[in-house]
């Protein structure tokens, strides 16, 4: 392997690992948010019909969407 190939390999490893991990964290955060809203809809702003700015039409008992 030439020095250029080595340099490219090193950069590829760095970018793949660091940015790959960032993507994994982002996906995990989204999944966790979904789990939280399913387990506990009352605490999520999006699913909370009683909180200003909440989405009224998602959980049972919420007001009807206009």
């Amino acid at each position: 392997m030439s020095p250029t190939t080595h340099a490219i390999a090193a950069y590829a490893v760095t970018i793949l690992l660091l940015w790959g991990y960032a993507m994994t964290l982002w996906l995990s955060a989204r999944r966790q948010k979904t789990i939280n809203s399913q387990n506990n809809p009352g605490r999520s702003l999006e699913n909370n019909p009683g909180v200003s700015g909440g989405n009224p039409g998602i959980i049972r008992g919420g007001s009807e969407p206009s």
Binding site: M1, P3, H6, A7, A9, A10, V13, T14, L17, L18, Y21
Partner: peptide
């Protein structure tokens, strides 16, 4: 752990060359 892995891997690639 992630950063240290990057350090070891890039160091190994550099060292090999």
């Amino acid at each position: 752990v992630l950063l240290c892995s990057v350090v070891l891997l890039t160091g190994m690639i550099w060292g090999h060359s």
